[in-house]
């Protein structure tokens, strides 16, 4: 990031004309170009694999942010939506032979339906109550799946998890030997999720959500029904998370309840959004881009030597970020950007 900014500093005439908005646009475009060119410039499969993991988490965190960031509620149960999407995608392909592309969408719809069932009663709760209820729902589903071998004839396979049947390289079956196709798929998904969030910020729904976040009672007095709009946002968020769960299943070719519906997975999504900057378009992306590699690098370098140290470091970063960057990492970045553009104008 820093590198790109300094490049921009070298071209002040651009900033002069544009100011903050153009500067940000430029940065987004530059990031987009880098993202598009990345697997071509650096085709090393492990590198591309790591980038896919980063993008997947960025996508999931963006989906989480879609409701939680804008409503100001903390969901620690989003993994249940990912689980529904992941399981549905695999089962629809392995049992019915229907392409995972369609399966992912069905999984997303199922997740959205579940979200309405969960969200309808729970959105009345505030703060920690809401957070704890989402954990409880997700844990109920996790324990149930882990202990259910078949449900209505559907083989959930209990705690053993289910695998994606291998068919070899195939677009229809969403299976590739190389990493690059997965990369572009998740990149497109991420861009769509970012666009959806960007659109939300400028929509009536986004406006209502912010009003609800600011002062729920006042919003209600204005005739905004908090429950209704929150539910709509939650359903969209759950749909996106469910589709992401489908991607997880196709990419890792395996789903199990312990991981995909686990509390830790939910916590990861929430942490990335919050550390990056919840309630902003690019915050969750930023959080995922920074935190996933930190986790991966510390695990690779320290995991075998001093087990646990990498999680300690992760925890300390979390504490520091919550204490000193309450609006997320995106906040200082924004101020740097606007300062840069001001400097540009005065020069």
């Amino acid at each position: 990031m820093a590198l790109r900014i300094s490049k921009n500093m070298g071209a002040p005439q651009l900033a002069t004309k544009s100011g903050y908005g153009r500067m940000a646009t430029l940065l987004v475009v530059a990031a987009g170009v880098v993202a598009l060119a990345l697997p071509i410039a650096m085709p090393d499969p492990y590198f591309v694999h790591s980038c896919i993991v980063v993008l997947l988490f960025a996508y999931m965190a963006t989906s989480w942010n879609f409701v939680c960031g804008y409503v100001g509620q903390l969901s620690i149960g989003h993994a249940m939506f990912a689980g529904v999407g992941g399981y549905a995608t695999v089962l629809i392909f392995s049992r019915l032979g229907i392409s995972p592309w369609l399966g992912m969408l069905v999984g997303g719809v199922l997740a959205a339906m579940l979200s309405v069932v969960v969200g309808y009663p729970t959105f009345r709760l505030k703060g920690p109550y809401f957070a704890l209820t989402t954990i409880a729902f997700a844990e109920m589903i996790r324990i149930w799946v882990e202990n259910t071998d078949t449900f209505l004839g559907i083989p959930l396979n209990g705690a053993a998890g289910i695998t994606v049947p291998l068919v070899g390289e195939s677009w229809v079956a969403f299976q590739f030997n190389g990493k690059t196709p997965y990369y572009y798929v998740i990149l497109v998904m991420l861009v769509l999720a970012l666009l959806a969030t960007w659109r939300l910020e400028r929509s009536k729904l986004g406006f209502y959500l912010k009003a609800i976040r600011g002062d729920r009672d006042a919003a209600e007095a204005l005739g905004i029904s908090p429950a209704r709009y929150q539910l709509v946002a939650l359903a969209i968020s759950a749909f996106m998370t469910g589709v992401g769960g489908g991607f997880y299943a196709q990419f890792f070719r395996y789903v199990n309840a312990d991981r995909l519906i686990g509390v830790e997975f939910s916590i990861d999504l929430a942490l990335m959004s919050i550390i990056g900057g919840q309630g902003t378009v690019f915050g969750p992306l930023l959080g995922a881009v920074l935190l996933t590699p930190i986790a991966e690098i510390t695990r690779g370098h320290l995991g075998g030597v001093l087990p646990g140290l990498h999680i300690v470091i992760y925890g300390i970063i979390l504490i520091l970020a919550v204490l000193y960057l309450p609006k997320g990492l995106i906040d200082p970045l924004r101020s740097i950007l606007s300062r840069l553009s001001k400097n540009g104008r005065s020069a």
């Binding site: 499969p45 790591s50 890792f252 991981r259 690779g300 990498h310």
Partner: peptide
């Protein structure tokens, strides 16, 4: 010997396997 910590999680085990094999 090089070690990868799976943390008992399938996706992390997969990523670590990629790392050991590629890197």
């Amino acid at each position: 010997l090089v070690f990868g910590d799976s943390q008992s999680k399938p996706d992390i085990g997969v990523s670590e396997t990629e790392r050991l094999i590629q890197r």
